[in-house]
């Protein structure tokens, strides 16, 4: 797989087995304007920036681990992106996810890295494609968080109708907008009787990460376990044309 095409002037770093990454303030705890950059081996895989918005409380787990940043590192392998969701009703179960290969640099601040970061190649998107599965029954153990789990008996999420960005809290609106721009779609549970109400957020309710065990919230009436399995690599289905 050729991820990188270099055409460098004298004042930029020549190509090598290493690549530079930039982790901006929406990806690492650093404060707006700051960034962490690092060099790593290309062969270690690639990273994606995750943009997500959920109307309900959520916990994201990648391959069995809660990522400490919104930068997700992927080896060339099979992966499982999972959520635990809690809501007071099905009408609040709506989430959008877009993970974009993250070597995209904002030009106004980071001109120096534009020369030697590759263009985005991969995306993981929430879509009503039958590959986002859910269950309402708590899994017996943590196997569901890892790739290779048999979710064939799980139900399939569908597109959530009629969500407007205006219904997303201001603090998270840009994340939702970016996820939609990249091609993500709000997903929700399928209607039982064909009259599923539009997914909306009540005033002031935003995406709220769990701060304690999901089971601690007795008020939640809906609990979902969601998983999406995908493969990264030269023949990956998620490679963009």
């Amino acid at each position: 797989m050729e991820l990188v095409r270099f055409d460098l002037p004298q004042d930029t770093k020549p190509p090598s087995d290493l690549m530079a990454e930039l982790h901006e303030s929406h990806q690492v705890p650093i404060g707006c304007g700051g960034a962490v950059f690092r060099w790593r081996r290309r062969s270690d895989g690639f990273r994606m920036t995750l943009y997500q918005h959920c109307f309900c409380r959520s916990r994201l787990i990648l391959d069995g681990v809660e990522p400490p940043t919104t930068l997700l590192m992927f080896s060339f392998d099979r992966h499982a992106l999972c959520f635990e969701l809690e809501a007071s009703s099905d009408s609040l179960v709506g989430f959008v996810v877009a993970a974009e290969e993250a070597d995209v640099v904002r030009p106004h601040n980071w001109m120096f890295l534009e020369d030697f970061v590759p263009p985005p190649t991969y995306r993981v998107l929430s879509k009503p494609d039958g590959k986002w599965k859910f269950t309402r029954t708590r899994p017996a153990n943590d196997d569901w968080l890892r790739p290779g789990f048999d979710d064939s008996q799980w139900d399939t999420l569908v597109a959530a109708p009629g969500i407007e960005l205006g219904s997303v809290g201001r603090q998270h609106r840009w994340l939702a907008r970016r996820a939609l721009e990249l091609g993500g779609c709000y997903l929700t549970t399928p209607p039982d009787d064909g009259s599923h109400p539009p997914t909306t957020a009540p005033p002031g309710q935003h995406d709220t990460p769990f701060r304690e065990s999901p089971s601690a919230d007795r008020s939640a009436e809906v609990r979902l376990w969601v998983r999406h399995e995908f493969v990264t690599g030269p023949e990956a289905e998620l490679k963009l044309p």
Partner: peptide, 22 residues
């Protein structure tokens, strides 16, 4: 190992690329 980095002019509007804990 050599790393090129702009000799940033600090009077611009934008926060320079050197705002990093690295």
């Amino acid at each position: 190992f050599r790393m090129p980095m702009p000799a940033v002019t600090l009077t611009g509007k934008y926060i320079p690329a050197t705002c990093t804990p690295c």
